[in-house]
Design a protein around this nucleic acid. Structure first.
Length: 547
RNA sequence: GGCCCGUUGGUCAAGCGGUUAAGACUCCGCCCUCUCACGGCGGCGACAAGGGUUCGAUUCCCUUACGGGUCACCA
């Protein structure tokens, strides 16, 4: 009776019952084994790599099991919230192709039957469930002041006891309705706390799908359920939301494992079925020989916008994350070259328990491999979008699509495609010579100026309009031989004194004349892209430069 | 400090009582080759330390060290 009165005193405006919500959000009709999970960030800043990783894992788990992945915004802390926080997260997710089945699509728009997906819009739901707890005597109003709280904390530290409001320190546990009413009428503010049924010497066990069995002391703290502003804490909101949204797997960072005993207890007192937990280890960064968590403030690569700005395609980042999540992915990838990554049999239990160091070199390697599998058209489209926002010069160059496709198509699409582009930011420099003729040249010191001129003059005669790719190299080789160069490097090495050099030296001279560089892809194809006139004109430029 | 978790080559990692301790990235050779890239072959390089248990421990237990997380009316 007392409990019921207390509930009405605290929550007079709540008329709905938990049953109402249970019916409103029925069990999901999904096939056996389907994973329902979510990404539940606070809108406090840009999406960071750890968040992207967590949502990626959730997305992958849902996708590979025919489940649901949704985005819930945890905005119960108004103080830390920033403007456009939701948009920042949604954009970050979009940029990397993390698709959302349900939840927030923008600052105000959402989709799905289990909403609202923003916690601030769920106030009545939480209050309804807290009211129920009060009715059952499992929760109570607490009028302790901040000073009192820090006082008991000091005392507890002194006595080396568990800090927090528990047992004998929970002075409002048994407050009467009369007293509560008196204090409320007097304008006192209060929080609602759980009356923890935990016992000091008991332990709880749970199984994390990544980390396995974990055993910890049972929670005995009367945790805050509703803050003085009537808004729930993370702990309570998490329990109510994930129950009502029918989450099967709670995927989140491993900073949460230490509060699992609280969550376990909360699910229990509410009479909710327990979800499975998947606690992901953080991605680390090396610093001064040590490891530390990738930091939003200190590390540019912590912000997902870094990858967008550098021009790592979503597919590259996706594959990198997959190798980070399940290390057998690379092996699977090699065995299933043409299969979509979505078909990869993702497994929580294969995830690493320790934090992995973020490895940009590895990302580059994976990205090169990924970009090498793309067609010139695909590269063009991705590059077009990227340069539009990030590189005006490149963007202007891409306006001549026909030419750009030729440039991007050099040595692409064959059995051994080139792997030399890791990110779009590299492209401008990498393709520079297709768009601007070299203005200065550095020919090898081993070859005299006269010899260079001789090679170039002769090459103008050799390089004809109708030359094919099969004929090109033999023609260069013959020319080299005539001028006194060995027709292959081996011959030259065997008898260096007999030759002026070898065919490689000759083609390098030509290469530098045309591109200004000593290392480039196949010269014939470069010339083909440039066109006959341009090629000859560049040779002439080089000749004039030397004279 | 209490409570959790972790520690296999420079990095990411297989391994789950008996293995010459996989593989990938990096680095270094060689081959292919007109340069570069690709590709192929090969090499360098590891079970944090000490105790147990066991015929036998990288694998199981304990201790130590180191690293990480957490102990809010923040998530």
């Amino acid at each position: 009776m007392e409990n019921l009165k207390m509930a009405e005193l605290l929550f007079p405006e709540i008329t709905k019952t938990p049953e109402y919500y249970e019916e409103l959000y029925p069990a999901r009709n999904l096939k056996e084994g389907a994973v329902v999970t979510r990404f539940a960030p606070s809108p406090t800043g840009f999406l960071h790599f750890g968040g992207l990783f967590a949502s990626f894992v959730g997305r992958t788990a849902a996708k590979t099991t025919g489940g649901v992945f949704f985005l819930r915004i945890e905005d119960t802390d108004k103080k830390r919230e920033i403007e456009n926080g939701v948009s920042l997260i949604v954009k970050g997710l979009n940029d990397f192709g993390i698709e959302i089945d349900e939840g927030m699509l923008s600052e105000t728009v959402e989709k799905g039957e289990y909403g609202p997906y923003t916690q601030s819009a769920r106030r009545d739901i939480y209050r309804c469930f807290v009211k129920e707890l009060v009715k059952k005597g499992m929760a109570y109003p607490c009028f302790m002041s901040e000073e009192e709280l820090s006082q008991i904390r000091e005392l507890q530290e002194e006595k080396k006891e568990l800090p927090g409001v528990w047992g004998k320190y929970a002075k409002f546990r048994d407050i009467t309705v009369e007293e509560a009413k008196k204090r409320i009428d007097a304008g006192e503010q209060y929080v609602v706390r759980l009356r923890s049924p935990g016992q000091e010497d008991k332990r709880v066990k749970f199984k994390d799908v990544i980390r396995g069995e974990i055993e910890m002391p049972e929670n005995i703290i009367d945790v805050v359920l509703l803050k003085k502003d009537g808004i729930p804490t993370y702990h309570f909101a998490h329990v109510v939301d994930d129950h009502l949204m029918r989450t099967t797997h709670v995927v989140r960072g491993d900073e949460w494992v230490s509060s699992v005993p609280i969550h376990l207890q909360l699910f229990n007192v509410c009479g909710f079925k327990l979800p499975k937990f998947a606690h992901i280890s953080p991605i680390m960064k090396e610093e001064n020989g040590g490891k530390r968590k990738l930091s939003k403030r200190k590390d540019p690569e912590a912000a997902v916008s870094f990858y967008e700005e550098e021009g790592y395609p979503a597919g590259s980042v996706w594959e990198y994350l997959l190798t980070l999540a399940n290390s057998n992915y690379e092996e699977w990838r090699r065995a299933n070259k043409d299969v979509s990554p979505e078909k990869f049999p993702f497994s929580f239990s294969k995830m690493s328990k320790g934090g992995a160091l973020f490895d940009l070199v590895k990302l580059n390697d994976i990205s090169k491999g990924y970009i090498a599998t793309l067609s010139a058209d695909e590269v063009y489209d991705l590059l077009y979008d990227w340069s539009k926002a990030n590189d005006d010069v490149l963007f202007a160059r891409l306006q001549d699509k026909e030419y750009a496709l030729k440039v991007l198509g050099v040595e692409r699409g064959n059995a051994k495609p080139r792997k030399d582009i890791a990110k779009w930011k590299d492209v401008r420099d990498y393709t520079e010579y297709y768009f601007t003729a070299p203005t200065s040249y550095e020919f090898s010191v081993n070859i005299s100026k006269d010899a260079v001129l001789e090679i170039l003059e002769n090459y103008k005669k050799v390089y004809t309009k109708d030359l094919t790719s099969e004929d090109w190299f033999p023609a260069v080789r013959d020319m080299a031989e005539e001028l006194g160069y060995a027709k292959n490097p081996k011959l030259y090495k065997e008898n260096p004194d007999a030759f002026m050099g070898h065919v490689g030296d000759v083609s390098t001279v030509i290469r530098i004349a045309i591109t200004g560089r000593s290392n480039t892809p196949d010269l014939f194809w470069i010339s083909t892209v440039l066109g006959y006139e341009e090629t000859i004109s560049r040779i002439d430029n080089a000749i004039n430069f030397l004279k």
